[in-house]
Simulated scan of single mutants.
Amino acid sequence: MADRGSDVRPPYRWPDPDRDYTNGAFIPGAADYPPRWQAKAEAFRAALGPRAELDLPYGPAPRQKLDLFLPEGPPRGAMVFVHGGYWHLFDKSHWSHLAAGVLARGFAVAMPGYTLAPEARISAMTAEIAKACWFVATRIAGPLVVTGHSAGGHLAARMACTDIALPLTRVVPISPLTELGPLMATTMNAKLRLDEAEAASESPARLGLRPEVAAHVWVGAAERPAFLWQARTLAEEWACPWTADADRHHFDVIDALTDPASLLVETLLGPL
């Protein structure tokens, strides 16, 4: 078996929470992914022309804006995709191309920005994404589906929890962080500022799923063990299906969103 990225892996220590949640060090060519995402996203927006409504404000803060991508005909409903980056990296402009699969199925796609750490706590991000979802629900009639990747998967899952009221039909968190307790021991917590109280109130795995919302957890089968544990933990706590996508790692598990015939897109939309 080939050594996957051994030249950039952190030194082994056990236990090591930072290593548990390191993705790029275990993915060959990891540094090439963000510029590739950004180039594909820019080309997608340009090709969509007037059907890409950019930087629509859903609140007063600088990052409280979303991009709305419209299908060729009247939308059958809407999907909200929440980007990841451990709550402190990236922005909505990196991911536009991931709307392609759902858009081809006749659904509008919204991609919200949100205030990142350390400027905002995770609880504030949850409130912002809920506000963005309400904006989309008032703009686009029909079923509302929410998904997101990694930290965005966490925020997507939060939209289906019993403490949030949204007209939500289905949630499909992709590679989500669902139990935040372990992240308190990582060095990134200097930015996130998670404490015991917020870990409890913001962990979807500790919160109930609203009974009217259908849920399906998605994760790459080749992801870090911590992410497989996070995904399965939520599926068990919510008693919902989960899929470990064969041979997919943390950076390419989202690629299926570009394909309208993929099982991931079918899981998001069928039989809406």
Rank of each mutant, 00 (worst) to 15 (best):
F26K: 14
G101T: 04
L48P: 00
S201N: 11
D16M: 02
P15I: 15
I174A: 05
I27W: 01
S123W: 02
R139A: 09
W95C: 05
W218E: 06
V102S: 01
A141G: 08
A110K: 00
M1S: 09
Y58H: 05
F81D: 01
S123K: 13
P173S: 11
L269G: 00
A43I: 11
P112R: 15
R4F: 10
R206Y: 08
M184I: 14
A104P: 00
D7W: 09
F135R: 03
R248G: 00
E202H: 07
A185I: 12
L68W: 00
G73M: 10
E119Q: 12
A221L: 07
I140F: 01
I164P: 00
L272V: 07
V217G: 05
P17D: 13
D67W: 01
T115C: 04
P143D: 15
G49Q: 08
A256S: 07
G59Q: 08
V145A: 04
I254N: 03
W218L: 03
V265Q: 03
E53V: 14
R224Q: 11
G77Q: 02
P62T: 14
E196D: 13
R63L: 12
W229G: 06
C133L: 07
A41P: 08
L234A: 10
C133A: 12
T233L: 09
P62I: 14
L268M: 09
L56K: 03
F107R: 00
A41K: 02
M184W: 06
E223F: 09
P204W: 12
R210L: 13
P182Q: 10
A39Y: 08
W87A: 02
G29A: 11
F107L: 11
L268T: 01
G84N: 06
F81M: 07
L68C: 06
A100Y: 06
R224T: 04
L272D: 05
I129E: 00
